[in-house]
């Protein structure tokens, strides 16, 4: 009998230790980034462009570039994603075509980010002649986050009680109006919070924008969607691996990492908090 409980204690110890290790890894990484990066952060760092071959100055163009690319990715991913999910949850009947679509979405979700980069390069940059640009980068990122947004939207749409749809349809309200007036408004908060996690991903990805949008250095801000931009993740990569003086720019690297992590995890954290609040508030 004691042996049984001893085994159990050892097992529980291992299991708790795993959870602890994961927490410590996250905590350690964030702690390390904050302690090394915070001294660099200043208003100038965020609002000024780099100077002296990127060994001094701020990272403003990279922040702006990341905002442009992320907004562009949302503009592509959100409408396509929500519309796909509406088809799958509200209209589609089980059958071959739906199966193909679902497999397609799963496969798309599994495509490595660097392959998305190649696709963006081969299709948007070269074939459609967009060049390395905000447009090409946004499209690539938008399709990268599409499966995430479809998944989040499907889940949110499914959580709207079937009885709401039945009540509306039984009044002689058409299907589209039922979706538009009843289903979507009730699913929208869930769709948005779920999608935010995808948006965080778009802001932090590097490989898809390396060949499609990101510039090593541009002094001026983009004037059209056909311009290249700097971006935070790529800026980190460039400074850490190919900068003119890698050791001397360490503080800037840490500062940039801190800004990027702050933005991405900030976005994620907001989504997680809103979601928790909504779950508690939900009344059906």
């Amino acid at each position: 009998m004691r042996w049984r409980y001893l085994k159990q204690s050892v097992f529980f110890g291992l299991v708790s230790a795993s959870a602890l290790i994961i927490t410590l890894v996250l905590g350690g990484i964030i702690f390390y980034i904050i302690t090394n990066g915070y001294s660099v952060i200043s208003l100038d760092f965020i609002t000024k462009p780099p100077t002296d071959s990127m060994t001094k100055g701020g990272i403003m163009p990279a922040i702006i570039g990341t905002i442009y690319l992320t907004v562009g990715a949302i503009a592509i991913g959100l409408p396509f994603g929500i519309a796909s999910a509406i088809y799958l949850t509200e209209y589609a009947r089980q059958g071959k075509i739906v199966r193909i679509i679902k497999i397609g979405i799963n496969c798309l979700a599994g495509v490595p980010s660097v392959v998305f980069g190649l696709f963006g390069l081969g299709f948007f940059v070269i074939f459609l002649k967009f060049g390395s640009s905000i447009l090409a980068g946004s499209l690539t990122l938008g399709f990268l986050i599409l499966p995430t947004i479809i998944g989040a939207s499907e889940e949110a749409l499914k959580s709207v009680p079937q009885t709401f749809r039945e009540a509306s349809l039984s009044l002689g309200v058409s299907k589209w109006q039922t979706i538009y007036r009843i289903v979507l408004p009730n699913a929208l908060p869930g769709i948005l919070t779920g999608s935010i996690l995808g948006i965080g991903r778009a802001a932090g990805e590097t490989a898809p924008i390396m060949f499609t949008a990101a510039a090593f250095f541009t002094a001026k801000l983009p004037s059209s969607i056909f311009d290249e931009v700097m971006a935070l993740p790529y800026h980190i990569y460039v400074l850490a691996t190919a900068g003119t003086n890698i050791e001397a720019t360490r503080p800037i690297q840490f500062g940039t990492v801190l800004v990027l992590v702050g933005v991405v995890l900030g976005i994620d954290l907001i989504a997680i908090i809103i979601r928790g609040y909504m779950r508690r508030k939900k009344r059906w």
Partner: peptide, 25 residues
């Protein structure tokens, strides 16, 4: 609940940040 959030945040860390962490630490 908090552990689930921790894991979600870990998933949210940009890969370039983890790469950077591997390089400098």
């Amino acid at each position: 609940e908090s552990l689930k959030s921790v894991i979600e945040l870990l998933a949210g860390l940009p890969s370039v940040v983890l790469g950077f962490f591997g390089m400098v630490i």
